[in-house]
């Protein structure tokens, strides 16, 4: 059974989230304080974490950083502010997605499903992007013989670009393919994650060779072997 860890200081909201998520077929673990997350995390080993930004003890952004040091588990931030700084701080700390309260529970579940989805096993050949080899079966990426750790979202993002080399993806396209969004949502989500992904896979993130920016349009995969 899929275990979701819900971290929110509002007991009623946490309980309600528990009801909705159990209804959707998940197992739920409720946590009310930021500083209680890490001890529980290592014993429970959840499949996804719903993390409020404002938490007593330890802020959501801090918790997010601590989790990322240990694990690539999908994290969806819950924010009571649509204050952009809040959201961006969470994303930069390593969150995969965010929802602004009051959100539509159906949409929350839909987004969680995308994050929990195992990317399809129908492809078994290795993909390459730049000088990086993507092992789709092992779910790992290798650069110069070394494995680079990526979150599942970052992996999905890289695979989406690598599957169709040469095609330029708009931010909206990436949002719907990788995040499972309906159109007309916040495209900064894409920008922040592309930056994070670049910092992991690019040799020089300032001069990207693997994920290229197409000004005014979006992003595309770098050509394999096109650089030293």
């Amino acid at each position: 059974m899929t275990l979701i860890m819900v971290v929110d200081d509002d007991l009623d909201l946490a309980e309600m989230l528990g009801i909705v998520l159990t209804g959707a077929g998940y197992e739920v673990d409720l946590v009310n304080r930021g500083d209680e997350v890490m001890p529980l995390f290592s014993t429970q080993n959840p499949d996804l974490i719903l993390l409020d930004v404002m938490l007593p003890g330890l802020s959501g952004v801090e918790v997010c950083k601590l989790i990322r040091e240990k694990s690539m588990v999908p994290i969806v931030m819950l924010s009571a502010k649509d204050d952009k700084q809040d959201v961006v701080a969470g994303l930069e700390a390593g969150a995969d997605d965010y929802m602004v309260k009051p959100f539509d529970p159906a949409e929350l579940v839909a987004r969680m499903k995308v994050r929990l989805r195992r990317s399809g096993g129908e492809v078994n050949s290795d993909l390459t992007i730049g000088n990086i080899v993507i092992d789709q079966i092992e779910h790992s990426i290798i650069r110069d013989g070394r494995i680079i750790a990526l979150t599942r979202l970052e992996f999905d993002l890289l695979v989406a670009l690598a599957k169709e080399p040469g095609r330029v993806f708009s931010r909206e396209e990436l949002l719907s393919q990788v995040w499972g969004y309906r159109p007309a949502t916040d495209t900064r989500l894409v920008n922040v994650h592309i930056q994070r992904l670049r910092s992991k896979v690019e040799i020089d993130p300032e001069n990207p060779a693997i994920i290229l920016t197409v000004r005014g349009v979006g992003y595309k995969a770098g050509v394999p072997g096109s650089f030293q």
């Binding site: 009623d12 009051p102 959100f103 539509d104």
Partner: peptide, 14 residues
């Protein structure tokens, strides 16, 4: 306002 509204919304959906 948002946090209780989220709870209310989820409850109403249920």
């Amino acid at each position: 306002l948002r946090t209780p509204l989220t709870t209310i919304r989820m409850a109403s959906q249920v």
